[in-house]
């Protein structure tokens, strides 16, 4: 009987190892590391500077725009995979197809750029 699982055995091994490591390393550091707590050491770490204010603050909408645009280009990249796999078989016709596809998105990129959506300081 043919199974769809055979090529996924290495992936399963990697996932298993990653999961075991993620569980083992924090455990090892807490079990083996020395524990000499002080008031400064147990304060929340914030990139070396003293922490100020609550952790939950509203994020700027700029992050949202970048994330939305990222999804659009991510979906475009997804379409590149099946094209790249068939690149030899499709030949020049496939190349022009992908050029038309990419050109439409480059128009969008130019629009986004000109509108200043990629400028962080604005």
């Amino acid at each position: 009987m043919i199974t769809p699982l055979a090529p996924y055995l290495p992936l399963a091994v990697v996932l298993l190892l990653a999961g075991l490591m993620a569980m083992a390393i924090p455990q090892l550091t807490t079990r083996l590391g020395p524990k000499r707590p002080s008031a400064i050491k147990s304060s929340p770490f914030e990139a070396g500077s003293e922490s100020s204010g609550p952790a939950r603050q509203r994020f700027a909408v700029k992050f949202y725009v970048v994330a939305l645009l990222f999804i659009v280009f991510d979906v475009e990249a997804v379409f590149l995979y099946p094209w790249a796999v068939n690149f030899q078989a499709l030949g020049w016709f496939g190349y022009v197809e992908m050029l038309v596809f990419a050109a439409t998105l480059i128009v969008g990129l130019i629009y986004v750029w000109k509108k200043g959506a990629l400028d962080w300081e604005s």
Binding site: L68, V72, F101, G108, V112, G116
Partner: peptide, 23 residues
């Protein structure tokens, strides 16, 4: 497939118009 590129273009423009005009 080519229509998808137009859809993605609309999504891009929409994202900019909706989010960027309010800053």
């Amino acid at each position: 497939f080519e229509a998808v590129s137009l859809l993605l273009l609309v999504a891009m423009v929409g994202a900019v118009v909706v989010a960027k005009s309010r800053i």
